[in-house]
Amino acid sequence: MPDDLLRHVIGPTPYSSWWLWLAIALTVVLIVFYLGVFVATSPRRRLRTVPVVGAARDRVIRYRAARAVRAIGDRYRAGDLDAEPAGEAVDRELRRFLRQVSGVRAEYMQIDDVANSEIAAAAPLLANLVDVRFNAASGLDVGVVSHDAEELIRSWA
């Protein structure tokens, strides 16, 4: 075999550097994905201690709850809901909000228990909602009570 043909034989073709950058990018995406899953599935109390995530989570919960209460009040004012179902819906949304924000199981608590807990600021409003729901002769307006609930939600610290 003549030596002049050896100049046409070369070694393996080198890999492109794009493969390295693609592997690095996919690794970073995988790490971010697992961190997202960890944050999304972590217990709520621990999530509240993360500075940016906890503040954003509380803001989103506050916004959703206030929007739901406002929608219930608007439906009552429009005549789509009677006083008792509207009061029950506002009570349910308010208690759900209190549980999500404070961790106190407000859905299962009596008014006296609420008054003696860390969510005591909501006890008078919950008492008004109980009056609206169970007292047919109540003089309270559900529209006003729903507005008060919305203000409590927006100002909750």
Score class of each variant (00 low, 15 high):
residue 5 L to P: 01
residue 7 R to I: 13
residue 10 I to S: 09
residue 12 P to N: 09
residue 15 Y to F: 06
residue 16 S to H: 14
residue 16 S to Q: 10
residue 21 W to L: 10
residue 24 I to A: 14
residue 26 L to T: 04
residue 28 V to H: 04
residue 30 L to W: 13
residue 30 L to P: 00
residue 31 I to V: 14
residue 33 F to R: 02
residue 34 Y to P: 01
residue 37 V to E: 13
residue 38 F to W: 13
residue 38 F to S: 13
residue 40 A to F: 10
residue 46 R to Q: 14
residue 47 L to P: 00
residue 47 L to H: 03
residue 49 T to V: 00
residue 50 V to E: 08
residue 50 V to G: 02
residue 51 P to F: 03
residue 52 V to H: 08
residue 54 G to K: 11
residue 56 A to G: 15
residue 59 R to D: 13
residue 64 R to F: 07
residue 66 A to Y: 11
residue 67 R to F: 11
residue 68 A to H: 09
residue 69 V to C: 10
residue 69 V to D: 03
residue 73 G to S: 12
residue 73 G to A: 07
residue 76 Y to I: 00
residue 79 G to I: 04
residue 80 D to G: 05
residue 82 D to T: 00
residue 84 E to C: 01
residue 85 P to S: 08
residue 86 A to W: 00
residue 90 V to M: 08
residue 92 R to I: 06
residue 100 Q to C: 01
residue 102 S to P: 05
residue 103 G to M: 07
residue 103 G to A: 00
residue 104 V to M: 08
residue 104 V to F: 11
residue 105 R to T: 09
residue 108 Y to L: 09
residue 109 M to Y: 05
residue 113 D to N: 11
residue 113 D to Y: 03
residue 115 A to F: 01
residue 115 A to P: 04
residue 117 S to R: 02
residue 118 E to F: 01
residue 118 E to P: 00
residue 119 I to P: 02
residue 119 I to T: 02
residue 120 A to R: 15
residue 127 A to R: 14
residue 129 L to W: 11
residue 130 V to F: 12
residue 135 N to T: 12
residue 136 A to V: 05
residue 138 S to Y: 05
residue 140 L to I: 15
residue 142 V to N: 02
residue 149 A to H: 10
residue 150 E to K: 07
residue 150 E to R: 08
residue 151 E to M: 15
residue 152 L to P: 00
residue 152 L to Q: 03
residue 153 I to L: 14
residue 155 S to R: 14
residue 155 S to L: 04
residue 156 W to C: 03
residue 157 A to S: 08
